[in-house]
Design a protein around this nucleic acid. Structure first.
Lengths: 109, 109
DNA sequence: CATAATCATAAACCATGGCTTATGATAAGC
DNA sequence: GCTTATCATAAGCCATGGTTTATGATTATG
């Protein structure tokens, strides 16, 4: 399993997750986010860069502003990555349970 | 959205994710993991502690060994947390698209 | 054209956290 | 019982990365 994990890393930081949630709620400019959150504008820009590279967010120039939107493409990618991880983990868990049951049955012979 | 996010943080680190994947593949002891991965035993123990506190993993003493299994409980919790996040993000995206369509229609009048 | 506003990048600072070595505690094996 | 193996915790080191201030580039505004 050598899959991409930029999305998970991106969402691991609290303020970056907050940035994502605000953008997810409705498209916002950098200035707007900087006004809303208790961090500087460059910090916001940096977080947006990480989210952008993880394809969770997309920028759209509008005059001097940059409006950020959710990027459903990267969202889907991360979803798929997690689903696979989940699937593997749950399959393994089921196998484990089944193996335990078999052993119990053997013991009942 | 003030939900728990220990799971995401736990899976953000590469070697910790590797530990989780190995445990998810099949239950393993700390010594086994330490032998498999290129980090010390205390490092493994520490990663397992984080995963344990995120309820992604569960320890089961077996003699002097500690066998770690996947914990489907915490797995489900994190799943639910992510699903909500996904839902919100995708809903907002749909609204955004609809709003754009309406504006186009207005322009066509 | 000049001023103001928006944003990205660079540099520097510093806390967080991942890693190692050291150590003690518990359990198995001889 | 003594040695060996397994594991968790503590202490300390150091790289990563989140933050701020400074700066330049681009665009609206007057």
């Amino acid at each position: 399993m050598v899959y991409d994990y930029a999305g998970v890393v991106a969402l691991a930081d609290p303020t970056r997750r907050k940035v994502f949630e605000l953008v997810a709620d409705e498209p916002r400019s950098v200035a707007n986010l900087a006004r809303t959150l208790p961090v500087s504008q460059p910090a916001i820009s940096h977080h947006l860069k990480v989210l952008r590279e993880a394809r969770l967010v997309r920028a759209e120039p509008r005059g001097a502003s940059n409006i950020y939107h959710v990027d459903p493409h990267g969202l889907g990618e991360m979803r798929a990555w997690l689903d696979q991880m989940w699937g593997n983990a749950l399959d393994a868990f089921r196998n484990e349970v089944n193996k335990a049951k078999e052993q119990n049955n053997d013991g009942d012979h």
